[in-house]
Design a protein around this nucleic acid. Structure first.
Lengths: 244, 244
DNA sequence: ATGTGTCTGTGCGATAAAGCACACAAGATG
DNA sequence: CATCTTGTGTGCTTTATCGCACAGACACAT
């Protein structure tokens, strides 16, 4: 892939694009372009991380796997986020699995290089920490949402959060996979999705969901979606406002 | 309160106690001793934080309040934690409320002083970041637990996490308050607590719960309790192992 | 075209928890 | 002591979701 295109791709990640020129120049030679396949596991729960990933077109889920095999998504990162917080937070590991939910590209950076860059402080450190706080909000909101909202509301929230990181309106994803993300039954997702389709908010056929009415989805979702995006904007808006 | 006792109290917070002598010496004159009353709100959702709090004998809950008034606890901090992550993460604010769940003491530090100390890096920064990661695990686990486990299991988890930060076996707390924390009905808590009492794990009378059989509670709890404490130990154990 | 695996729809019964209503009891207050 | 407030127990109906079973429908390969 030509260098020019790589550069474009790098800047598709909002966090990297937000860096001032001098800080970006310091990092850019440590960035490595990678392509992520659907279902690829960036790291397992407990694995020592080797790289931090900045998705550009890929979307990555943070999945928690219970002892009995049940799964639930606790967070998600696309081109407005990163994967591998544990590297600069100090733990080297997290208790979740990072799995590619939508194939695409990402830029990655070796753990040691990242830690060195983080230690320099500056905007880079600030962005990483602010992003971490926004991820905490996302996780908290998931916790609350799991407790208090219906499957249908949660499905709307999930579709919207995904849509925000997609370049199209088509999401390649079966009900079964969504059920794993939301930690509910497949049938529950089918019923909720059927209802949304009946109301003309989405359309789906065998593993592809098309968003038809974003505004309608926002109405059908619980407050959680708005809280999460608002908090992201509050924390990182001053850096990346021009890119959204 | 005499200075000597204040010093003892400061060191009751495991994170502060873990600091090497030179770093502690740098901070200690910025620490202010405060007493926290039951129900006191350290900050509201959206408030700009002024201080970071290191509880010594108090226990503080991070409560999320929905638009419809429903509440759910997303995290908790006692003498092994701190309150006010948003100060060093950069957001200055979080979308949760910090409320004193068990009266006691804490040490606090002005936001500006904290940020200066954080920027110096060193063990202090490392501890703050590692604690933040452990809090993320706690929040994630709460999310998963809300989705997949029964009220009774969650009650056990909650009792154990609290007990870990208490100096006694008696917890002053009504079923109603616990219900607010867990985001469930009061009756649900009464039934679960009744069952635990019948099995001899706890005893309660009008707002006071006594832990009778910790090991039994651990068995009755879901895996979530162990995951959270193990991760805390992994992240911070090297610093504070001697104090536990 | 035929089969085969995958995805979605649907119809049960079982269950956990919600929502509501109210009784009862222990302390606190006057 | 009488009353009030607060905390807990219990019963009932309703609801959401689960767990399971299976049928149809589509896509793809041979």
């Amino acid at each position: 892939m030509p260098l020019a295109q790589q550069k474009d791709d790098v800047l598709m990640n909002h966090l990297l694009a937000a860096l001032p020129a001098d800080e970006f120049a310091r990092l850019k030679f440590d960035l490595e372009f990678v392509s992520l396949a659907l279902g690829e596991v960036l790291y397992e729960s407990g694995d020592k991380l080797t790289h931090i990933y900045f998705p550009t077109t890929a979307i990555v889920s943070l999945l928690y796997i219970m002892e009995n095999g049940a799964t639930a998504e606790i967070g998600i990162a696309g081109n407005n986020g990163l994967i591998g917080i544990a590297l600069f937070m100090g733990g080297e590991t997290t208790s979740s699995r990072a799995v590619v939910q939508s194939a695409g590209n990402a830029v990655r950076m070796k753990g040691a290089k990242l830690k060195a860059a983080f230690a320099l402080g500056g905007v880079f450190q600030d962005i990483l920490l602010r992003y971490t706080q926004s991820l905490m909000t996302q996780i908290s909101q998931t916790a609350v949402c799991n407790r208090l909202h219906s499957v249908e509301q949660q499905l709307c929230r999930w579709l919207l959060i995904n849509h925000d990181q997609m370049q199209t309106d088509k999401l390649v994803m079966t009900h079964d996979l969504i059920a794993n993300m939301l930690g509910v039954r497949r049938e529950g997702v089918s019923i909720a999705a059927g209802s949304l389709q009946k109301r003309g908010l989405i359309k789906y056929v065998r593993g592809t969901i098309t968003m038809l009415d974003r505004a309608g989805l926002e109405v059908a979702a619980c407050e959680c979606y708005q809280v999460v995006t608002d908090e992201y904007d509050r924390l990182l808006g001053e850096y990346i406002s021009k890119n959204r």
